[in-house]
Amino acid sequence: MCVLAVLCTASCHDDRDDYTTIASIDLTLPDGGTIETMQYSLHMMNLNTRNTVTLAGSTHAGSLVVGDLLRGAYSISVEGVVRYSVAGAEGSRVAQFRALSDYVSIVELNKNVISLEMILMD
């Protein structure tokens, strides 16, 4: 019986229980410049389950952190309004933006960093 138990545990397949991870989406302006404040609406669709995670908010940084995300392949779409300043120019500008990616792999266990370039609409 002991031999059986040992053999069973040794050859047993282990469950893969690491279901969730954290993704950090870094948005960058197209011609350099710093983001002062941003209002965004983020949609992340899991390509395997077709479930969509939606997040809306505002931030002073250019980075959006999404936690408790099921690992897998995603398509990402962010849109909103950004106030930014360009180096060497006076004052700050406001523009609507969009950032898209139709495939991103979010499988790392600790942190996944995704860089997206913003497309300014104005």
Partner: peptide, 18 residues
Amino acid sequence: YLAGTSSSQIYPVIAHLT
């Protein structure tokens, strides 16, 4: 098995979860 992107119908397996 979680499949990655497709290029010419070849999907790589990027992870698997129970």
